[in-house]
């Protein structure tokens, strides 16, 4: 397994598109969060940490493309025959790719989420929403003419939404890897994952029957996974329960991929 992991890491490291894709993910995530934070006029009591993490909803699309391409590109170029010739234990190839996706997406997502939290501190108007701390008198004294951002209160730096968002993006990456491996195509893979992330919530919203609507919201990977960002508990989906359902999605996709990969002719 060590050799296979090292090989897949070398492969990912030397693929020119991958690093720029992850950089893109960080940029669009932070940019959207910054835009939202700068323009929002939150009512008192609004969920500021969640607002600051809005960018994740765009970043997830780039993570999905990344997760799909990790395997989809091998099918597009035919490289998969070389990979499987070198490592005939196909489940091991998938496991190594999953490990690479976990590592790279976790690293990039940590940077992106940290960026979101930072712009949240800097840009979200103080005095609204969750109460923030007073200006640091020392800082105010030293830089009287420079506007100093409010020192974050423990509430504002809510740990669960931030850590949960990183985990969410990692799971989306794994789901995408599993889907792309199952369908053996980047285009179809991206289509399926983006439909799950963006179309399913729209369908959910227009479903008339409230019971069905609730069921769909409790099943859709985006709606359940993003429940972890809520500072105030969502009555329908608990934050960690939601992430747990997303884990089932990712594990299910990877299991299907492993079975198909082992049984099919390459």
């Amino acid at each position: 397994m060590g050799c296979v992991l090292r090989a897949e890491w070398t492969k990912a490291r030397t693929s020119p598109g991958m690093s720029s894709l992850l950089a893109t993910m960080v940029v669009v995530t932070v940019a959207l969060s910054a835009a939202v934070a700068a323009t929002a006029d939150p009512l008192p009591g609004a969920d500021l940490p969640k607002l600051g993490l809005t960018g994740v909803q765009l970043g997830q699309a780039v993570v999905a493309v990344f997760g799909v391409l990790v395997m989809g590109e091998e099918y597009a170029t035919g490289l998969v025959t070389v990979t499987v010739t070198a490592v005939p234990h196909r489940a091991m190839v998938l496991a190594a790719k999953a490990a690479v996706v976990i590592g790279l997406v976790a690293a990039a997502a940590t940077v992106a989420v940290a960026g979101c939290v930072l712009v949240g501190w800097l840009l979200v108007p103080t005095g609204a929403g969750v109460p923030t701390g007073a200006l640091s008198s020392a800082a105010a004294g030293l830089h009287a003419e420079v506007p100093v951002p409010a020192a974050p209160s423990p509430d504002a730096v809510a740990v669960r939404p931030a850590v949960g968002s990183v985990l969410y993006l990692v799971l989306i990456g794994l789901l995408s890897l599993g889907v792309a491996t199952s369908v053996r195509s980047s285009a179809v893979g991206v289509g399926i994952v983006l439909a799950l992330l963006y179309v399913l919530p729209i369908v959910t919203a227009v479903v008339a029957d409230p019971t069905w609507q609730r069921h769909l919201r409790q099943l859709g990977p985006a709606s359940v996974g993003l429940a972890v960002q809520a500072s105030t508990a969502d009555p329908e989906i608990g934050p960690w329960t939601g992430l747990g359902i997303l884990v089932l999605w990712a594990v299910g996709a990877l299991l299907a991929a492993a079975i198909l990969l082992a049984r099919r002719d390459v």
């Binding site: 050799c3 090292r6 030397t14 598109g17 091998e74 170029t77 490289l79 070389v82 010739t85 490592v87």
Partner: peptide
């Protein structure tokens, strides 16, 4: 397996963006 059998099936099966050396490097690592 590459220590038992070396094979060339389809010369075009490679990641086009990777350099020749890096293509061989990941294979060597495997």
């Amino acid at each position: 397996p590459l220590r038992h059998v070396g094979s060339l099936l389809d010369a075009s099966a490679l990641g086009p963006g990777r350099t020749a050396r890096n293509h061989l490097l990941w294979l060597a690592h495997s």
